[in-house]
Design a binder for these strands. Sequence first.
DNA 1: TCTGGGGTCCTAGGACCC
DNA 2: TCTGGGGTCCTAGGACCC
Length: 427
Amino acid sequence: MSARAIALVDGNNFYVSCERAFNPNLEGCPVVVLSSNDGCVVARSAEARALGIGMGEPFFKVRPLIKSHGLRWLSSNFSLYHDMSARMMALLGEFSPSQEIYSVDECFLDFTALPVDVLAHAQKLRARVQCYLGLPTCVGLAPSKTLAKLANHMAKRDSQWSGVCDWNELPSTAQQRVMASLPVKEIWGVGGRISESLQALGIKTVWQLRNADPALIRARFSVVLARTVAELNGVSCLDLGSVPNQREQIICSRSFGQPVVALNDLKDTIINHINHAAERMRSEGLHCQSVGVFLHTYRFNLHKLQYAPSIQATLPQPTDDSRLLIAAALRALEAIYKTGYEYQKSGIQLSGLQPQHVIQVDLFSNGDRLRSERLMSAVDGINQRYGQPMVALGAAGMAHRKHFWQVRNDNRSPRYTTHWDDLAEAY
DNA sequence: TCTGGGGTCCTAGGACCC
DNA sequence: TCTGGGGTCCTAGGACCC
């Protein structure tokens, strides 16, 4: 059996590139995109990176660079990024029968059985995405997913590759040199904790990890890391999940614009989260078996008491009815809420997701179920038609009602591709 | 003053059963 | 007084990812 040829395609500074596609004035200057509440940096242009701005850095620390170095900043515009992502993934899907969409800006493509020159094929897809969408990408090619990630990393870091790095084309001495120069933490699947433990064992570079004893790794760590070691040796252990797995949970959480103290305000935020999450769940034809609620105080404030409770409530039967979910979530909230804390974040989690058709029908509640389905689809229909929540359950979270705890995103660009009003604003 | 949000997978340990 | 062992299922928590 011949080795596999796996491509990892990744958008360069994806959020920044989406902004630049619609606002060419952002070309050539340092640009960052911020998380919600304009809290921290989640995307940086190459120029911003060159200024030493780190990923995840709090915005207040880099703010001085606006004046000193002409740093441009934007609140995140997720409608835009997700729409651009969907377009990019659709384009990329045409280049292989097998595609795994891994994140908003990355996908794996299997080139193994294609009668093409893989390097040329990769360059062709880059050109297509650049031409159709104005988005720059890089491609890593290798016999395993982990090595494809590594090759992609190289393609991004060094312009000698012209955007495509094929691991197989490297002489083995060069492969060794690359691996020996990279700290183990750079590898996909090795985070801060594992990297620390590895260092303690004297495994500091990717090359050392590649040559580590698989049995030792399996025993001291887990099957996951053992697979990583095999993958570094060119043995493919991770298949392409080209059929998306059934989603397991839906989470919705937000940090507040200002601290929240009162139970009633927290209830409003929870109702908001449930309305959002339940709509998404219904749009995917799913029901959930349980609802979780969690709270967080402001974790960076060391002078105040910290409290971060969470609770999981199992429903009598799976449902997608927002009213039932809200009732359960509010009971759960009341169970964990304590006075005397300044809360900074709340969230909910819908889990035990299953498709509608596998749910056992309870004969006695069939009438209720039909009424509930009609009501929920009416609510979703109205909201989809107007593009924003016109109808919400529980009297909270209405678009026209501004809450003090709502997120701040003052510097968001127009939602060029998903909102008619913003289209007008753009031209 | 100001530090995100949404996921997956694996494992350990408890509950329960025979 | 003396109180098994093993399988399965579920959940919480930890680690990772972007």
